[in-house]
Design a binder for these strands. Structure first.
Lengths: 263, 263
DNA sequence: GAGTGGTCTAGACCACGCG
DNA sequence: GCGTGGTCTAGACCACTCA
């Protein structure tokens, strides 16, 4: 900012944190802009799949240069919250887009690739309203006894049952979710969550272990009790690092494997 | 570039790909600069841990603006090939740095964190020169029968054997590697590879399955044959996507878990 | 051809690390 | 106080998309 800001009716966001604070907490302008855009994203100013305003418009709105909003958007794009498309605009990310469907599912077939195999067939075994146990409440940042929705399902690939999953969702946010919805929605479950409940899963953590199934689990997956399985516990978050889904999956790894890239 | 380039004794990198090509293959300047820096990195112009020239120096060398080399370095930093340190410079990344030690090891203790637990104790069971099998050759991009070094070792945490690993390395690049080196080097094995052999592991892929150990494996890990284990096959790459290490690990997951972040 | 994101430049100033 | 990376601006031009 060469001279003091040019005459304007509205002050631009302040350059630094509070003056005289013990921790100066310097925050660059573009981080503040990023925060403002994030806020609009969270509060649904633009819906998933929609375009956000152009860089020039945002620069005008926030009274900063295009380069500054560009850097803010760059970070949002790096976090997969928005998607840039040259010549078209910047769009709120979705779990619906073809290329990145099943973004969070890292299980790949040993032979061929996921696109050959096609999407999983879903069998809903259970979908009921329940009360959060102490453990589930802790993980989902609820109180024990709060309403939750519990789902049990099987995912099959080319007819072979491969994943047995238990899902817990906060009842509050997913009021009215039915087994029919879970079973018949075309496309990723997370896309349905976005469209029908306005809940966007933004990132997730997984803890993976090797386990043996019990009798019931083995039957559902059509394996023996001595077949080792991957136990995948996933905690998925919306904006603001708010946990919104707990998933416990058992993955068969005789025809598939969990794939991960490190750098 | 407003007017044609200012008078200079050396031409800057060309702005576009070959003229008249069917695919114009437009490549931005900063990508070309990135390529040049990468080339210097690969050929050891700057060694791991050393500082690369300042942005201003590089800008002068390549006859572009500081902003352009900045964007090139930004990408290299995003890929963990270099590390920026404000006020000090930009440094060639290392597997030695404290914070990111064991960058590629995703196994965490269930209780406490890795820093509490401390580094793994290594027990080398085997370290010998051998010939690549057809399978290993295919994976490491060698020819069957080419010399390889084969290592078998156990990693223990707080005295408990937790990981049983088989490692295959191209004999060419790791000529002279001994069991003593593997056992007694302080710090990550990948740091030793950098210092003693000039081989930098830059990224890796892992395929994970659940398996049961055979008799021998079970004994080494001090578990029964019916204890399910994580089978982790890792292929690690140096520059240029050249595969340089194959690792097959068996991980106990009774006290640890494989942790992964998705976004 | 108008509008969007993408690249490139040049220059100013800021925060940080170190002697 | 100097050199480094980090932020911010203003302006020009390029590549892509779509009407």
């Amino acid at each position: 900012m060469p001279p003091p800001p040019p005459p304007s009716t509205e002050d631009p966001p302040s350059m630094s944190g509070s003056v005289g604070s013990v921790t100066p907490a310097f925050s660059p302008l573009y981080q503040q802009i990023k925060g403002l855009i994030l806020h609009s994203l969270q509060h649904g100013e633009w819906k998933p799949g929609e375009a956000i305003p152009s860089e020039i418009e945002l620069a005008a709105r926030f009274r900063v240069s295009q380069g500054t909003v560009r850097k803010a958007i760059d970070e949002l794009a790096a976090e997969n919250l928005v998607t840039r498309r040259q010549g078209k605009g910047t769009f709120v990310s979705t779990h619906t887009e073809r290329q990145v469907q099943y973004r969070f599912l890292k299980l790949l077939p040993d032979e061929g690739d996921a696109s050959v195999e096609g999407p999983a067939q879903r069998t809903i075994l259970e979908c009921r309203r329940a009360r959060a146990s102490v453990e589930v409440a802790r993980i989902l940042a609820l109180r024990a006894g709060d309403p939750v929705i519990q789902i049990k399902r099987i995912l099959s690939f080319t007819g072979v049952p491969t994943i047995l999953e238990d899902i817990w969702l906060p009842g509050q946010a997913f009021k009215g979710l039915t087994a029919e919805q879970m079973a018949h929605y075309q496309g990723p479950t997370y896309a349905m969550f976005e469209i029908d409940f306005g809940v966007r899963m933004v990132r997730a953590e997984e803890k993976i272990r090797a386990v043996l199934p019990d009798e019931t689990q083995a039957q559902w997956l059509n394996v023996t009790c001595s077949t080792p399985l991957l136990s995948v516990e996933r905690l998925a978050y919306t904006y603001n690092d708010a946990p919104m889904e707990l998933r416990r999956g058992l993955y068969r790894t005789d025809t598939h494997h969990y794939y991960n890239e490190l750098s």
